[in-house]
Design a protein around this nucleic acid. Structure first.
Length: 474
DNA sequence: TTAAAGTCAATAGA
DNA sequence: TCTATTGACTTTAA
């Protein structure tokens, strides 16, 4: 019940001011918006602007995005979250009405915003929309109206269709399609969602730690051994990589904020961190376990260790191939073989590792793989990694941490550029915020760094194998 | 073709 | 009911 003093009202106020000045676009948006929004979600294909913003005839959202100065994505999401929660507005409503995105996407975006400089034009769009929305003094009211309207519509529908639905149920499922009627064509084709078991995830994570970019062969092996479709494994790696990367962004942001903590207060803060190398650096690589383990002790240490090992060639342990190692422990259903994974097991499946990968490493990712067994060891890294993997483990988590984060702007910043145009626009979109909470997660940062190091090493190795020049950003 | 980025949408939890 | 998570899909680059 108490409205937080600061959040909504304040932000609105400040935003308002911002708005007034510069840009025309914004004003427009408000007016047009309410009306338009009435027509809901809109499929919004892509090109133009579906939502609210469309109001301004003058500039399309894309244009705004293109002209937009660097925005503090972290600060924006933070404010949006505040406004939404303070006013009891849901992500779904906000997403569909303002951003043209689904609830899940909004949740993700708000929880893990990527830094501005890492976003593509498309990716920046939601942030620009959010900023414009924040700048709109009537933003909350409009959304509230929408909410009311939806409710009304819902009730209406409900009443009218109650009877129908019942009948449908009775008629029951399944039948529909066979007939070919096309009532709801889509249902039929749906395939059930794959849900990976915890053990499977663990195995994949371990494999990932050893090789963030597994070769097709390794993927095959993993798929076979885990009894998953190859595409599932591929998708998992893609998703995991990008998600890990985002986790890192956040970590960095938080870290950065902490460091600069002291000065809070400035309204228009710009975040500092981005500026430095971070940009590319950090993130990329990342493999690490970042998110993954939650376990207090074990994992972390391991990871660091492994990283270190790699670099030094440390003693590692056994070093199995990624696939193998990863599987250990995993594969719940099946046996957990103690150690022998190496060779086949049941159906011979397992032998993964051994893949003596004979042929030359074709693609980048492969380089490492080929090496494994063979003594090449260049791969010390590999081996080392594997070790850690085994132990390690588990849980994913860092989330909480992220959640807590509360403050600080971060993401963007880099003022440098400073073109005038940019500046003016900036005022348009002005941002502010400050505040911070700090959680020290040094250790976690350290882990990430170690992971990043791993990744760098990995890439270097790949590059070496290809002998191609590469520019590294560290 | 592969990887990354961006999303969707099912679903798990609170 | 709302939010968070996550496998899969689509688009875009290289």
């Amino acid at each position: 019940a108490p409205e937080s003093p600061m959040s909504s009202s304040e932000s609105v106020k400040s935003l308002t001011e911002l708005v007034q000045q510069p840009c025309p676009a914004i004003d427009t948006s408000k007016d047009g918006k309410s009306q338009e929004s009435s027509e809901p979600p809109v499929s919004e294909s892509q090109s133009t602007t579906p939502l609210p913003l469309s109001g301004h005839s003058a500039l399309s959202i894309q244009e705004l995005v293109a002209m937009s100065p660097e925005l503090d994505t972290y600060g924006i999401t933070k404010r949006v979250k505040e406004v939404l929660t303070d006013n009891n507005l849901g992500q779904r409503l906000f997403g569909e009405t303002i951003l043209g995105l689904t609830q899940g996407s909004v949740s993700d975006l708000l929880a893990r915003p990527k830094p501005w400089h890492k976003l593509s034009l498309k990716g920046r769009e939601p942030f620009v929309r959010m900023q414009l929305w924040l700048n709109d003094p009537n933003n909350v009211e409009k959304l509230m109206d929408m909410k009311r309207m939806e409710k009304k519509a819902y009730m209406k529908r409900r009443h009218s269709s109650v009877s129908d639905s019942q009948s449908c149920e009775s008629s029951s499922a399944g039948i529909d399609y066979s007939q070919g009627a096309s009532p709801q064509p889509q249902h039929q084709l749906k395939k059930p969602r794959v849900v990976l078991a915890p053990e499977e995830k663990e195995a994949l994570k371990r494999a990932y730690q050893q090789k963030p970019y597994p070769s097709p062969k390794t993927i095959e092996e993993l798929a076979t051994q885990l009894n998953l479709k190859t595409s599932t494994v591929i998708n998992w790696f893609h998703n995991y990589r990008s998600r890990i990367r985002r986790e890192l962004f956040i970590e960095e942001i938080q870290a950065g904020s902490q460091s600069q903590a002291g000065s809070s207060d400035s309204p228009s803060a710009r975040s500092g961190r981005a500026a430095h190398s971070s940009e590319g650096d950090s993130c990329d690589g990342v493999d690490a376990e970042g998110p993954p383990d939650g376990k207090p002790s074990g994992p972390e240490a391991d990871e660091l260790g492994s990283a270190a090992a790699k670099s030094q060639g440390g003693p590692g342990e056994p070093a199995l191939e990624a696939g193998e190692e990863a599987l250990r422990g995993a594969r719940p259903s099946e046996r957990a073989e103690p150690e022998g994974l190496e060779d086949t097991d049941d159906e011979g499946r397992l032998r993964a590792p051994r893949q003596s990968s004979p042929p030359a490493p074709q693609r980048p990712g492969d380089a490492l793989e080929t090496l494994p067994n063979s003594a090449t060891e260049g791969d010390a890294s590999t081996s080392a990694a594997s070790t850690s993997v085994l132990t390690g483990e588990s849980s994913y988590k860092s989330k909480e941490s992220s959640e807590k984060i509360s403050s600080v702007p971060s993401t963007s910043s880099t003022p440098a550029a400073g073109s005038q145009k940019a500046n003016s626009l900036q005022s348009l979109f002005g941002f502010s915020e400050a505040a911070s909470s700090r959680n020290t997660r040094d250790s976690s940062l350290r882990k990430k760094k170690a992971a990043n190091l791993n990744n760098i090493i990995h890439r270097l190795e790949k590059a070496a194998s290809r002998e191609e020049a590469v520019e590294w950003e560290f």
